[in-house]
Amino acid sequence: MNTRLLMTLRVTVAAPQNIAGVPHGTRRTVPITGGDFDGPWLRGSVLPGGSGDWLLLRADGVLELDFRATLRTDDGALISMRSFGLRHGPPEVMEALARGEAVEPAAYYFRTTPRFETSHPKYAFLNRRLAVATGDRRAEGPVYTIHELH
C-alpha cells in the first residue's frame, strides 16, 4: 500500500451525549468544539458547527466511529470531511481510555477512512482521493494522522 502524509488533525471535544442502548448497540455522540490540521498541502482549523463523532459500541466490543467535521483552510476554503472508523483493544486499555488516561496508541486499534468534499479548485484533488488514518485518543480529544492512498 502506497500512502503519503496528508495531514495531522487535532480536534477538541465537549462532554459526550450518552444516547445509551439503541437497537444496534450503545450510542454516544461527541460534539467537536474546534481543532486544527496541518500537512504538506493544507492547514487550517476545524469549525465547531457541523462537527462531531457519532459512536456506536457494538455487541462484540468494537466501537464504530462516524466522524464528520468541517475544515477551513488558512486561505478560506471549506472542506467537508467524513470518516468511518473502528476502535477496539484489550478491556483494560479501553477502560483506561474511558477514564481519560493517556494510553500508548499502539496498545489498541484505532483506524479510520476519511473522505473529503470541497468546491475549492485548489483542494479539488481531495474529492478524488481515499485516505486512511491512525487515531490517538487523548483526554482533550483525538489526534488523527491521515495518509492519502496514493
Binding site: 472508523g85 473502528l86 477496539h88 477512512t113
Partner: peptide, 12 residues
C-alpha cells in the same frame, strides 16, 4: 472469520 468484523482495509 470474526477478525474481519474488526478491521479496516484498503484495496487496489
Amino acid at each position: 472469520y470474526a477478525f474481519l468484523n474488526r478491521l479496516l482495509a484498503v484495496g487496489v
